[in-house]
C-alpha cells in the first residue's frame, strides 16, 4: 500500500522534474533574468507552452542559447531581440505595439465599446412612452368619459 502511494506521488512529480534542465548561474540576478525570460517567450513547436515549460527539442536548444547569452552578461532585451530577429514577434506573449499588432491590443477595447453601445443605446420605444404626444380635444373627452365610468 505504501509503495503504491509512493508510486502515485512519483508519477505526479516526475513530469515536473523531467521537463526542464537545471541551470547554474554565477549570479542570482542572472538567474532571475533567465527565468523571467523563459516565461515571456512562447515555444514555437508547442505553441501553448512557454519556452520554459516546453519539452520540445527546439525549446531546449533555444534555452541553451539564452542561457549562454545571459551567463555571458547580456541583457534580457538582447536575448529577446535574438529570438525575434529569427522567429518574429509571434514568440512574445506580449508583442510590441506596431502597425501589424495594433488590432491585437486595441481589439478588446473596441469590442467592449461596441457591446456597450448596443447595451446602453437609448431605447427609442421607452422615450416615446415617457413623452407622450399631446392628446387631441376629442381624445381628452374620450379619456374623461372613461375615467368617469371607472368612478
Amino acid at each position: 500500500m505504501r509503495i503504491m502511494l509512493l508510486l502515485m506521488i512519483g508519477s505526479l512529480v516526475a513530469p515536473l522534474l523531467g521537463a526542464v534542465e537545471v541551470r547554474e548561474f554565477d549570479d542570482l540576478e542572472k538567474q532571475t533574468r533567465y527565468e523571467h525570460l523563459l516565461k515571456e517567450v512562447r515555444c514555437l513547436v508547442c505553441q501553448n507552452q512557454t519556452l520554459g515549460d516546453s519539452d520540445a527539442e527546439l525549446a531546449k536548444d533555444l534555452r541553451d542559447e539564452i542561457y549562454s547569452m545571459i551567463q555571458s552578461g547580456q541583457s534580457e532585451e538582447e536575448a529577446i531581440s535574438f529570438l525575434t530577429d529569427r522567429y518574429g514577434d509571434f514568440v512574445l506573449y506580449r508583442p510590441p505595439f506596431k502597425s501589424v499588432t495594433w488590432l491585437l491590443w486595441v481589439g478588446p477595447v473596441l469590442f467592449i465599446l461596441a457591446g456597450g453601445s448596443i447595451a446602453f443605446w437609448p431605447k427609442r420605444d421607452k422615450q416615446r412612452q415617457a413623452n407622450p404626444k399631446e392628446l387631441t380635444d376629442e381624445e381628452r373627452l374620450e379619456l374623461d368619459r372613461l375615467k368617469r365610468r371607472i368612478d
Partner: peptide, 13 residues
C-alpha cells in the same frame, strides 16, 4: 549537427 544554423534561419519545424 547542433542546429545553430537552423536557429539562425528561424527553423522551428
Amino acid at each position: 549537427p547542433n542546429g545553430h544554423t537552423g536557429i539562425d534561419w528561424g527553423v522551428y519545424g
